[in-house]
């Protein structure tokens, strides 16, 4: 009982999260990775991720060199430095991942709140949701990626336009559960305007779910980028991203000596995905007040 005297939701959430050592390890992995890709271009002896390196003695491009002192992760089939490209690609992929995750969940949250709380709009939004949701996501992605100019903004836009649907439905279901609890009716009867009930009484209930959704959206968006680039509809070849790197490396899967060009970006992708997934799940558990005692 003494312990509850100063109960605070966020302190307890962090306490509960810290107990999960594996999640803590992956959280540090994410922080370390993000810190590293930010400072990496400013470290000494870094090469450009797009420049093509040429052997001065022969005048030929330094193609497909295995990892060495000069090129830490080797070079690719046209003589670019893999080390620089991997980190530039990670940077690009994480940027896409974060942007998409924030936008699609923000849109989903807003639509979901209105959908669940404003009864007059329920029918209309349900119809729109059903129509959009019944078109396979991949077809929308492919069509848009085809028609728009390939680029970073396009790929972010394309993923946001389909991604909010899941969040919206999730939020809507939660709102419907919470909105008719007696204290919300009580609040309404005592003259609290609807937007205030949504903001003060309903939103706090969604925090843990949303955090989990965002942390799962990040690896999902990175995965989608890889997928789209892999089928040739993603980023142009000139922009290094994990998708582009894996796509390039894919050709050498059968050549043992060149397999590093596929393996290294694939390993980085796996680390990112597993880290975000583990951290997100652990946080969702920790933010549930039932796990605080």
């Amino acid at each position: 009982m003494m312990k509850n005297l100063k109960y605070s939701y966020w302190t307890s959430t962090i306490e509960a999260f810290k107990k999960n050592k594996l999640a803590l390890f992956f959280l540090y992995t994410i922080i370390g990775l993000i810190a590293f890709i930010i400072i990496q271009p400013y470290l000494p002896n870094q090469k450009s991720p797009v420049a093509i390196y040429i052997d001065k003695a022969t005048g030929f491009q330094l193609i497909n060199r295995p990892p060495s002192k000069e090129f830490w992760f080797g070079t690719n089939s046209i003589g670019q430095d893999m080390w620089a490209r991997i980190w530039a690609g990670t940077r690009m992929s994480l940027l896409i991942g974060f942007t998409v995750a924030l936008w699609e969940n923000f849109i989903g949250l807003m639509v979901g709140l209105v959908w669940g709380y404003v009864r007059r709009l329920e029918g209309i939004i349900s119809t729109i949701y059903n129509v959009l949701n019944n078109i396979p996501k991949t077809i929308i992605l492919i069509l848009l990626a085809y028609t728009l100019k390939p680029g970073v903004l396009t790929i972010i836009f394309v993923m946001c336009i389909t991604g909010w649907l899941d969040t919206a439905r999730l939020v809507r279901n939660l709102v419907v559960i919470i909105r008719d609890r007696e204290y919300n009716i009580a609040s309404r009867i005592l003259g609290t305007p609807g937007y205030r009930i949504a903001y003060k009484n309903i939103l706090p209930y969604l925090v843990s779910t949303l955090v989990l959704k965002i942390s799962l959206s990040i690896p999902a968006a990175i995965g989608y980028e890889v997928f789209l680039t892999y089928i040739g509809l993603g980023l142009p070849v000139g922009i290094p991203s994990l998708g582009n790197l894996i796509n390039e490396g894919r050709g050498y899967i059968t050549v043992a000596s060149l397999r590093y060009q596929l393996m290294i970006p694939a390993i980085v992708l796996s680390i990112i995905t597993v880290s975000f997934y583990t951290v997100g799940n652990a946080f969702a558990d920790a933010s549930d007040p039932k796990n605080h005692f």
Partner: peptide, 28 residues
């Protein structure tokens, strides 16, 4: 409309509910 009711609710007519266990928001 809800706007008309907002003039009455709380300010003029307020209500005490029968179930004190559920009439308060557990998160606040």
């Amino acid at each position: 409309s809800e706007d008309e009711w907002l003039k009455i609710r709380g300010k003029e007519i307020a209500m005490v509910f029968q179930e004190p266990m559920t009439a308060l928001n557990p998160l606040r």
